[in-house]
């Protein structure tokens, strides 16, 4: 790692003030950023650790939605969302490993927008709202391709508001080494619509499979996907773990399984 200073603000306001410094960068749980720093792929002059900000560590029910503070760890989501939103709780409970889940946060994951992160698929499928220190952004507008988001310099994710679906499930087909999703599909059924978010697969980052959403809205069953046009292989990631064709093949397979498992 390059040398840098670290600050540990206690409030969002203090954090924003600290982030005003030149080359300052926020760090939440650090489970992605710290390995990146070790590879010397980032060179901040100052890290502003959000891990000590208690006001960001919460989950609370807001009517038909679940509001999750940006500092909530995956472990907290896995435990505390289990009753209100079991599909999301199970997604969180399978991110990384227990130690990673005790540090990694939803805010950090959403801000980083790794093309293989799990949460963005749920945010897209549910039509979640990304809440920052200055505004609210719809998921469809927020995720802008691999590692690209609508966040501006110095803006931090303070929370994510998920409309709670009637039924949902996440199916992850793991890349065998990193255990990140090679393809992950989140299916969410609401009274008036169905959302299907796909992560890990596309060169354009997380996506919604709209043809499947329409078919499932009419008939929420795995069979409904039989003749639906699948995302094109030409848009898929190809790497040593999976060809584009294989990833494209897995999307309907995982979607069917998610529909079958939705609770």
């Amino acid at each position: 790692m390059y040398a840098f200073e670290i600050e540990r603000p206690k409030s969002v306001d203090e954090a924003l003030a600290a982030l005003g410094a030149e080359e300052a960068q926020p760090i939440s749980g650090g489970q992605t950023l710290i390995p990146t720093l070790k590879q010397r792929l980032a060179m901040p002059s100052k890290l502003v650790s959000l891990s000590g900000i208690d006001e960001l560590r919460y989950l609370r029910r807001e009517g038909d939605a679940l509001m999750i503070g940006g500092g909530a760890t995956h472990g907290m989501v896995a435990r505390e969302a289990a009753t209100d939103f079991p599909g999301l709780a199970k997604l969180a409970g399978k991110i990384g490993d227990p130690a990673v889940r005790n540090r990694g946060t939803i805010g950090g994951s959403i801000a980083n927008n790794d093309p293989s992160a799990c949460y963005p698929s749920a945010a897209m499928a549910c039509g979640a709202t990304i809440v920052t220190n200055s505004r609210e952004i719809a998921a469809d507008e927020y995720f802008q391709g691999m590692f690209m988001t609508a966040l501006e310099e110095g803006e931090i994710v303070t929370g994510v508001r998920f409309p709670i679906p009637q039924a949902s499930a996440y199916m992850k087909f793991e890349q065998i080494a990193s255990r990140f999703p090679l393809v992950g599909v989140f299916v969410a059924r609401f009274a008036d619509r169905v959302g299907v978010g796909v992560t890990g697969a596309s060169n354009n980052g997380v996506l919604r499979w709209r043809e499947a959403e329409e078919a499932l809205a009419a008939n929420f069953s795995p069979d409904a996907l039989a003749d639906v046009t699948a995302p094109r292989a030409s848009d898929m990631i190809a790497d040593l773990h999976g060809t584009a064709e294989y990833r494209a093949h897995l999307i309907p397979v995982m979607t069917k399984r998610a529909v079958a498992a939705a609770e």
Partner: peptide, 28 residues
């Protein structure tokens, strides 16, 4: 150095944490 092997696991405030993926300052 990619936070995967777990040889560095310790407990911080009773929770399992990879000591290679948290700064000492954050454990203040």
């Amino acid at each position: 150095d990619t936070s995967q092997c777990g040889a560095c696991c310790v407990h911080v405030n009773g929770e399992l944490v990879k000591a290679c993926t948290i700064f000492a300052a954050e454990a203040d």
